[in-house]
Design a protein around this nucleic acid. Sequence first.
DNA 1: CAATAAATTTAGGTGTGTCTAAAAATATTG
DNA 2: CAATATTTTTAGACACACCTAAATTTATTG
Lengths: 221, 221
Amino acid sequence: MQTISRENYLKAILKLEGRADIVSNQALADKLETKPASVTSMLHKLADEGWVKHEAYKGVQLTGEGKGIALATLRKHRLWEVFLVEKLNFGWDVVHQWAEELEHIGGEELTNRLDAFLGHPAFDPHGDPIPNALGKWKDGRNLVQASQAEPGSVVLIKGVLNSGEEFLQHLNTMHIQLGLQLIVVQRYEFDDGLVLEWPDGRQATISHETAQNLLVEMKQN
Amino acid sequence: MQTISRENYLKAILKLEGRADIVSNQALADKLETKPASVTSMLHKLADEGWVKHEAYKGVQLTGEGKGIALATLRKHRLWEVFLVEKLNFGWDVVHQWAEELEHIGGEELTNRLDAFLGHPAFDPHGDPIPNALGKWKDGRNLVQASQAEPGSVVLIKGVLNSGEEFLQHLNTMHIQLGLQLIVVQRYEFDDGLVLEWPDGRQATISHETAQNLLVEMKQN
DNA sequence: CAATAAATTTAGGTGTGTCTAAAAATATTG
DNA sequence: CAATATTTTTAGACACACCTAAATTTATTG
Ligand SMILES: [Mn+2]
Ligand SMILES: [Mn+2]
Ligand SMILES: [Mn+2]
Ligand SMILES: [Mn+2]
């Protein structure tokens, strides 16, 4: 039975599979803000449904069917985020929680109509690619963490590695947004802070931690 | 705690209060497609929350706070229905179930933005008035059941008393939709069937039951 | 490699919302 | 107005998704 909680678990497993090939109980508990015992219990249910392969004490992996559900949920999440930002004019820092609920509504038909209404967007407001109806996407971008950009280079802000409200609000405060082009002026040896220059000539420094969570496209140098 | 189920109950009570002043357990069970024992159980919870006044064996009534939640939920339901029809081009016969889920998402801020995005619609796709942010609406229309229209009169379709999928699909089949202007040509004495004439001159007959569920504005006669 | 630490699972509970079957209260009617 | 029918409530269960605390298993390390 496809419940909200189960879709959330499958989506979380999908994201964690991106890094490690096998997903640990603990990582899931952290991501879902729940307790390991709850995760174990749910993994049994997901395995019963045939959506994950679970080996006791070893970890989980999505099955083909499980991945399909996870991708469909992720697609809905990101499309609704685009809706909230593009159509209802919300900031990228507040849309995640609503999308977390909206992603569980309706099926393929509703999703495809929403997709068409939004003009088949390729990326969500955080720069994350939106899977198509088949769960596929192509991301021709070659993104790196801003922390890896050398002084003198020009970078284009294209995504974030942390979509949390606090981080995004910090970016708002720093006047950093997707599509912005910045010049990396200097790197402080001591703490790896980066001095950046905005198009209007203003300069400001971002911390190493902030730079690590910023995905950019290298324009020059 | 404001859960999906509790919002559904409050909304159901609100609608049933429209007819009888005190709502019976049975009526609620019917409307919510649940069992009387479940209703009793839920009414206790709603009473504990202070959202209804419940006298054992007598019936329920919304409190001010309960009515507020019910109206907010109804507002969201109808706004999302407008979205689905106006923006995603769904038919009025299929949007109810999705709205039944969407109505539980987000709060005032999201709702007000949606309202603005839709251009502050006064009525939903079924001709039902949409409460404003304060739960109020003004319905200047003077609607009657089509079954009460006399032969020779001209009527404007403005609403339905039954928003069920089957009835709405039947109206689709009959080419009856909101805003349509029809001439009542004749009433059959035997079964109160109504012969109607469409703007293109075509004529067709609708049953008394169908006419009873159609709300119209009298244009002439 | 045995002792310790960390991760995972099991056992036993809780709250929400539902159900069926039985008891209690209210309505209806001969 | 007493007998019967209907409505409502209570009692006892169940599924879902959580939790804490206590095993159990796996990993680490002296
Ligand atoms: Mn979610
Ligand atoms: Mn996103
Ligand atoms: Mn609902
Ligand atoms: Mn409606």
